[in-house]
């Protein structure tokens, strides 16, 4: 039907096939690494965040939680996992994606050393809509981030627009 030009593991299908995924929940996925200081300080340098809780303490900016769900860009074959972002595996027509909104609710401050598990649930998939970018559907998913003891650190409700440009369907 189409090819994944994003390299992120998009699967393709009809809107009806995609909507059948509403309510599905991923298996808990352990982040590849515990949160470490280099991740924290590099992220702080991106936005020039001088917060001493990050530079002198052991806390992690909550904005980094989403990073923990990403896999390395390459890994040896015997370590490869088929657990990319759950929402991208929903079979749908669009070959492009762009994030529309994210709501983060934090139960506690993430910390260096937290080895986070990520669980994603498909909350809703809209009917097809046309925006200035193209025609596609809005995928709403809820991701829960838990620490190594099962305690909830936070949740993200993410809305992703998956779409085709007008010329894609020509």
């Amino acid at each position: 039907m189409s090819e994944d030009v994003t390299g992120l593991g998009l699967r393709f299908g009809t809107v009806e096939e995609g909507k059948a995924w509403v309510g599905r929940r991923s298996e808990p996925k352990k982040a590849w690494f515990p949160i470490d200081r280099s991740m924290v300080l590099y992220y702080c340098s991106l936005v020039e965040d001088r917060n001493p809780r990050y530079w002198d303490g052991d806390e992690c900016p909550p904005g980094l939680l989403m990073t923990l769900g990403f896999n390395p860009q390459w890994s040896p074959e015997h370590l490869r996992r088929g657990d990319g972002l759950f929402a991208l595996g929903i079979p749908l027509p669009g070959k492009h994606i762009i994030n529309a909104s994210t709501t983060t609710e934090l139960e506690r401050r993430p910390r260096i050393g937290d080895h986070v598990s990520i669980e994603e649930e498909v909350a809703s998939i809209s009917d097809e809509k046309t925006t200035r970018l193209g025609t596609g559907v809005f995928i709403t998913s809820v991701t829960t981030y838990r620490d190594q003891d099962g305690g909830v650190i936070g949740r993200n409700t993410n809305v992703l627009f998956r779409y085709n440009l007008p010329e894609d369907s020509a």
């Binding site: 965040d49 917060n51 900016p61 909550p62 904005g63 989403m66």
Partner: peptide, 9 residues
């Protein structure tokens, strides 16, 4: 993720 960090900063 930039906007998350920028807003929080």
């Amino acid at each position: 993720l930039f906007y998350h960090g920028f807003i929080d900063r």
